[in-house]
Design a protein around this nucleic acid. Sequence first.
RNA 1: GGGGAGAUACCCAAGAGGUCAAAGGGGGCAGACUGUAAAUCUGUUGGCAGACGCCUUCGAAGGUUCGAUUCCUUCUCUCCCCA
Length: 426
Amino acid sequence: MGFLKNLENRGFIQQISDPALYDLLEKEHVSCYAGFDPSDSSLHLGHLIPIIGLMHFQQAGHRPIAVVGGATGMIGDPSGRDQERNLLTIDTIRANEIGIRSQLSRFLDFDRPDNPAILVNNFDWTNPFGYLEFLRDVGKHFSVNTMIAKESVKKRLESRDQGISYTEFSYQILQAYDFHHLSKSHGCRVQIGGSDQWGNITAGIDLNHRMGGEQLYGITFPLLMTAAGKKFGKSEGNAVWLDGTRTKPYEFYQYLFQSDDRDVVRFLKIFTLLPDEEIAALAECVAKDPEKREAQRRLAYEVTRMVHGDAGVRAAEGATRILFGAESIRGYDDDTLTAIFSDAPSVDVPRDSLGQGIPLLDLLPMTELCKSKGEARRLVTSGGLYINNDRETRLDKIVTMDDLASPSFLVLRSGKKTYFLVRFTG
RNA sequence: GGGGAGAUACCCAAGAGGUCAAAGGGGGCAGACUGUAAAUCUGUUGGCAGACGCCUUCGAAGGUUCGAUUCCUUCUCUCCCCA
């Protein structure tokens, strides 16, 4: 099967600028770029789509170029935004670039002999431009008539109370110029991006054409929605970050593990590099034995390993076994518990108070589990409180030395998965 | 500047002198059923006690009343219409 056809079957393709690309990618090895905006210091799960897209290109012998948007990030892409952005400070952008560069560099192979990946920053070629020079050489090729017809701009022009600044309006010119520049300097012929990038990509294709360059191509990926109708990659409205300090490997693993049956196969095709046959086998598991969640487990494993490495998956799997196993947590050492519950909130309590014992109803309001004693009472009464994974329903329970899960920790849990650690110190 | 409507707990929204810690819905938190899924059902959702009860809360400050979320005055803010 052809390379692009295969990507299409795996669910990567929303739009292709020209069907001639199918053939081109069979006959030649080309360079392909994707841009990443440094509006934050970490990429998130959604960014994995273009990243894996680049990985597919590299595996097929093409050359991937990852572009950090140090210049475009200073302007702000209006695409998909219904209001003007607040400009980030230069310091923030520079700091973010560093974070994003290091994340990107983990996914691509920079040492592959024939087609090593390249990581560049558009600031390097955009910054030296003088304003007049830029207007004459680049701006001249843009028709405002066309620019205002782009979806991202049009929406904002129609909105009476939002509008769009000249700065953001100019954004598409900068990104278009990136494509032209990469075509000239690295022979890049293809740009990939999210579906909201369509306008920016085609602007680049047009610009290159006007400036006498060769035919360029663009591919966009679909916006991923879950079967439940949520944006993929958001957990309670928060992004699932690739940065392990912002989203712990365990949470990352769990997010994927909890994929809906209706979504998991689609996600396997996009987020893993597993061969089609293997995914087909996993799809059968979902159909026959959905309760085993083989596909979810595999998805979580593959993606977590890609992002957090072997140690990261092992930690996530280990924590999963303890957290979702029903057996009580007893006789552990402090270090093991700290590692497993590294992302659980905790509170320190002086050890001496344990001497005469602490009434459970007094202990709970000291944690984030309950705001008041009344709430604690309701939680315990309803059977939603667990001490070291054992349900505790006695309102008059006194917590003592004997209840500790490790020399200094007590593990509290509210409901199915909200853990809280109490550490006895001193 | 003139006229009108409104402000109630996390959100929406009822209440029009005591029976109001305040209906209903959403959301949240638990429980049951499950597969760490979806759906469904149940309980709960100001604080302290948990038996009666006590305390704080209905935009803010005053007032009338035995008693006010409900009536009066002033203030603050929001929305709508007209200039």
